[in-house]
Amino acid sequence: MNQPRLPDLQPLRTNNSATILAGTGLWVVALVVLLIVRPGPDHQWWIWTCVSGICGGLFGLWFVRRLDRGKAPDEREPSPDTPSSAESTGPATATSPILPAPPVPPTAP
Rank of each mutant, 00 (worst) to 15 (best):
Q10W: 00
G56W: 13
G70D: 07
I54W: 01
I20W: 00
W45P: 12
E75Q: 11
P80V: 08
L26A: 12
W46P: 00
T107L: 09
A72D: 12
L31S: 02
N15I: 02
R76D: 03
E77M: 12
I36M: 08
E87A: 14
P97W: 09
R65K: 12
F59S: 05
R13F: 08
P41S: 06
L21M: 14
V37C: 00
I47W: 07
R66G: 03
P4V: 06
G23W: 01
T89G: 12
Q44K: 10
L35E: 09
Q3S: 09
A92E: 04
P80E: 09
D74K: 03
T93A: 11
T82C: 04
I98C: 02
T14Q: 13
Q3A: 10
Q44H: 03
G90W: 11
A94D: 13
E77A: 12
A92M: 09
T19L: 14
L61W: 10
S85M: 05
L99W: 14
P83F: 10
L12D: 05
G60I: 02
L99G: 07
L31G: 03
V51N: 01
D74Q: 08
N2G: 06
P41E: 04
I47P: 05
C50I: 01
W27F: 12
L61F: 14
N16K: 10
T95S: 14
A72S: 14
A22M: 08
V37H: 00
L26T: 09
R13K: 12
W62H: 14
R76H: 04
L12V: 04
T82R: 15
P91W: 01
R5G: 02
I98Q: 11
L21S: 15
E77S: 15
G23P: 00
P102L: 13
P7Q: 02
S96W: 07
T24W: 02
P103K: 05
P109W: 00
W27L: 01
G56R: 10
E87V: 02
W62R: 12
I47C: 05
K71C: 07
A72W: 08
S84R: 08
V104L: 13
H43D: 15
E75S: 01
D8L: 15
K71E: 09
T19E: 13
G56I: 04
D42Y: 07
Q3C: 06
A30P: 01
R65G: 05
R5H: 07
R38E: 08
D42S: 14
D74A: 11
N2V: 06
S84N: 09
L58A: 09
V29M: 08
A30G: 11
P91A: 03
A92T: 02
N2W: 03
D8N: 10
T93P: 06
A22W: 07
Q3I: 05
W46V: 10
S17P: 01
V32A: 09
W62V: 05
T49A: 15
L6M: 14
Q10H: 07
S52Q: 12
R66M: 05
C50V: 00
H43A: 11
G25L: 04
L58W: 07
P41Y: 02
A72L: 14
S96Y: 06
P103G: 06
T19I: 09
A72M: 07
A86Y: 11
P41M: 01
H43N: 15
W48V: 05
P102E: 10
P39D: 02
I36T: 08
R76C: 08
G25V: 01
G25R: 08
N15L: 08
F59E: 00
R65C: 04
T93S: 15
L67A: 05
M1A: 04
L6P: 11
